[in-house]
């Protein structure tokens, strides 16, 4: 019984300490911002591996999610004779929820896991210690560009996802099922508000960008420097990011849309 309590206490203290380390790491990374601005090259490299390489999966998923929404929405809406509002349904669900959330989940799987594995491997092969030996701050040099790249990429990726999704829904609704082209766009434009819907979606995706990249970088930086530790850090990155995104999404939605 006592050993059980001790295990529980150790686990609690360990997670509290991990949370503290994560916050300290975040602070340290912000401190590296001026140094990074003097070397935009570092950011460019990371924008490529975090942003550009994620575009393909985002684009393909966006089109298919939009097409499925168009198909499902059409069958349900046509029961009430409301096919005209298909555009609103597709756009509203994409702009408000699916765009930011699905992009964040895919981002965690594609870019987050890669970040965690890369940083974890750097740690276990002592490249980070090597940088420190050369009087280069590894947190500023290695981590800050990755964090900024993640935060910049996420809203752009989410916007691409949403746009392609709207076109996917348009392709199925207008192209295959015969909803009127003009109605699709006109209903959408009259019901979707720039500030209320689009901007809030963008804010959501920025928040998810911060959270996903932060978790990935922290898990990589904090991993046990063995091959098993790196694999665990990668797994944890995806699991924790997904849970954080879904949980935060509920909170943000409650705050934004009442």
């Amino acid at each position: 019984m006592i050993t059980w309590l001790a295990t529980l206490g150790r686990a609690g203290l360990a997670s509290a300490a991990r949370l503290g380390r994560a916050n300290l790491l975040m602070l340290a990374m912000w401190g590296g911002l001026p140094a990074m601005l003097r070397r935009p090259r570092l950011l460019l490299d990371q924008m490529f591996s975090v942003g550009v390489l994620t575009v393909l999966i985002i684009a393909v998923s966006g089109v298919f999610v939009g097409m499925v929404l168009g198909l499902q929405g059409y069958y349900i809406l046509s029961r009430f004779g409301a096919e005209a509002t298909l555009g609103v349904m597709v756009a509203a669900s994409l702009v408000r929820e699916l765009g930011p959330v699905v992009t964040a989940l895919l981002f965690a799987g594609r870019a987050g896991s890669a970040l965690a594995a890369e940083i974890g491997l750097m740690k276990s092969t002592e490249q980070l210690s090597g940088l420190e030996m050369m009087a280069v701050n590894p947190q500023h040099r290695v981590l800050t560009p990755r964090l900024v790249a993640g935060i910049l990429s996420m809203p752009l990726l989410a916007a691409m996802f949403t746009t392609l999704g709207v076109y996917g829904g348009w392709f199925v609704g207008v192209g295959l099922l015969g909803v009127d082209d003009g109605t699709y766009w006109a209903q959408m434009q009259s019901q979707i508000d720039w500030h209320e819907d689009v901007l809030n979606g963008v804010i959501k995706s920025v928040v998810f960008g911060v959270v996903c990249t932060w978790i990935a970088i922290f898990q990589g930086y904090d991993c046990v420097p063995t091959s098993e530790g790196v694999s665990r850090a990668t797994t944890r990155t995806v699991v924790h990011s997904s849970l954080a995104v879904l949980g935060l999404d509920f909170v943000l939605t409650a705050l934004m849309f009442n």
């Binding site: 702009v95 949403t162 746009t163 720039w194």
Partner: peptide
């Protein structure tokens, strides 16, 4: 596109 085509801006 989201601003001009999808929303009411």
């Amino acid at each position: 596109f989201l601003a001009m085509q999808v929303s009411n801006l």
